[in-house]
Design a protein around this nucleic acid. Sequence first.
DNA 1: AATCACCTTGGCAGAACTGCGGCAAAGGGT
DNA 2: ACCCTTTGCCGCAGTTCTGCCAAGGTGATT
Lengths: 215, 215
Amino acid sequence: MTLEAEGFEVETYNDGQSALEAFNRRMPDMAVLDIKMPRMDGMDLLQRMRQKTSIPVIFLTSKDDEIDEVLGLRMGADDYVKKPFSQRLLVERIRALLRRQEAINTGEAAATEETRMMERGALRMDPLRHSVTWKGLEVSLTVTEFLLLQALAQRPGFVKSRDQLMDVAYDDQVYVDDRTIDSHIKRLRKKMRSVDDTFSAIETLYGIGYRYNEE
Amino acid sequence: MTLEAEGFEVETYNDGQSALEAFNRRMPDMAVLDIKMPRMDGMDLLQRMRQKTSIPVIFLTSKDDEIDEVLGLRMGADDYVKKPFSQRLLVERIRALLRRQEAINTGEAAATEETRMMERGALRMDPLRHSVTWKGLEVSLTVTEFLLLQALAQRPGFVKSRDQLMDVAYDDQVYVDDRTIDSHIKRLRKKMRSVDDTFSAIETLYGIGYRYNEE
DNA sequence: AATCACCTTGGCAGAACTGCGGCAAAGGGT
DNA sequence: ACCCTTTGCCGCAGTTCTGCCAAGGTGATT
């Protein structure tokens, strides 16, 4: 299959049953289903899969089951491709869906209000993974650094005073010197510069506090 | 028996004959059979039971009758547990089987292997068989280790705090020091290293918890 | 330009955290 | 009663993180 030549990792199954097993086992990033399959057709399979995740699904339909297209989409398929189809077409549609999914994942989706993923310009923060990337490069932060950056990036362009930042990083009973925030900002900037020596997104407001600037 | 403490309703019989009678009378949700029993051994009993229903059956085997394991599975047993076994292991296997049965019942069609294998990179876990392999090599884990690894591997790349891991491995009432998790992770890593001394899939995040990384 | 206020940065000691060996106590099978 | 496995925890040593200091810079103000 040329899908592999395109850099995708692919697994193929000839019936719905084994496809479902494989799905549960591997949790793929997306699925391409034929409507007609032995041992469980595409519709049933889609329904089962939707109970677990919401990955992108493309249906393959032949002329005979055109009627099913609407039904399929309504059931949660993301796209369908009519047989016969060209390799290129399928690859394109797959790419498009994965791009869209990526956008959703990085943008809003994920968990709750506070723990969700954040994207601000070249910065990405994912609390659930405790991972931070700047221009695509992983930066390894400590808990305190992570919290401070999160607080700042939360509202790009808005100043946060040291007191406000302390509230984010410490429990109420804990008190530390103002200048300690400066220390953390220092280390934060240093780590960011270690992956991008032009980093300047954290600005100092003389006498006020710090500010994260997007762009 | 502590199975009752786990919320199961249990009846015990010391020979195959009375077990069969009880079986016909009560129609249980599942059965745990010893291979060796007076008045009718596990094999015969299984055969009789299978004529009526297809409830999950677990065999208990001792070293002497290892040969029977294959035979037993072929005859329709769903799982077997080697003696000596720990209370917790048995409970875990029973739960897994009941879960699967439940899935089959509600998901109507034969969703047989639904809750079966989990593959994450070089790791494979089979909750039903309580078996784990790393790069194809069998690793023998205790119940606690198994649960922790399962929880971590469930979502590769996501951090799990010690608290979250404790939730997975312990009942709500049980409380243990969170450094105990460290001990289990230690043993887990050690066992994994014993089959692959480069093992490093379980990462520590300072001040946060642990994370399973694929590849 | 002089002065004062406020920041940045390197350095450092103590605090916090983790890995590991080891041990004693359950827990439960025989 | 005896034994083996599993488990929770302790303590030490090594590592990482953090709060603060002090020296030197930068910005504001007069």
